[in-house]
């Protein structure tokens, strides 16, 4: 378990997503009503950044083909997406967001 700081809490306002490019694969960090989640940034359907998408009620919609995923579980919520997202453990410590990239696992 190696949590690394990815950004400050204030960098991701409520209802927004932020693309983080510090790891091998980009991740997206989401603020859902004050709760922070992290998933892979690349949509499993088309090659497109989910952080550019629309976040509503904890579900991210890709702008390219409107596939949807639950950012908490990684589960597919709307076609044409078929494969779930990889999700990452997140900790918020004193206004800073930490992600354990190595512990990422594919959602169910």
């Amino acid at each position: 378990m190696a949590f690394e700081k990815v950004c400050n809490l204030e960098d991701v306002s409520e209802g927004e997503a932020l693309q983080i490019e510090t790891f091998e694969e980009a991740i997206a960090v989401y603020n859902v009503g004050g709760q922070i989640f992290a998933t892979q940034d690349r949509c499993t359907h088309g090659d497109w950044s989910l952080a550019d998408g629309f976040l509503e009620d904890g579900v991210i919609e890709c702008t390219l083909h409107w596939g949807k995923f639950c950012v908490r579980t990684g589960k597919v919520k709307a076609p044409p997406a078929c494969d779930p997202l990889t999700i990452y453990p997140v900790e918020v410590r004193g206004g800073e967001i930490f992600v354990d990239y190595e512990a990422g696992k594919v959602g169910e």
Partner: peptide, 9 residues
């Protein structure tokens, strides 16, 4: 962010 054709994507 992008434009997607609503016929075949």
């Amino acid at each position: 962010k992008s434009f997607t054709c609503s016929y075949h994507g």
